[in-house]
């Protein structure tokens, strides 16, 4: 039991973020430029516009094990 609890505490969600190249992706770059820290379990997929994000992409991310999907644009 203590082991399981430990695993639950350690659990971190995997987040896939679809970021528009012109705003949110640039914003993520800006966060880097300003050395703002955030957890490493977020992966950015660069898209040319949030309008490019087909719902199919979101479903695919969940299907392949993502815990959360962020669409930013």
């Amino acid at each position: 039991m203590p082991g399981e609890l430990n695993a639950a505490e350690k659990w971190e969600p995997k987040i896939i973020a679809f970021c528009c190249n012109w705003c949110a992706y640039a914003g993520a770059d800006l966060a880097g430029l300003n050395r703002k820290k955030y957890p490493a379990n977020l992966l950015v997929v660069r898209v040319p516009c949030s309008g490019r994000v087909n719902p199919q992409f979101v479903l695919r991310a969940f299907q392949k094990g993502a815990d959360a999907v962020l669409v930013a644009g």
Partner: peptide, 20 residues
Amino acid sequence: ANIREQCAWVHDDREEATRK
């Protein structure tokens, strides 16, 4: 692969940053 602005610059833990 953007490993500077969206990785090295935003994560402190070397192991985690390398994994990402």
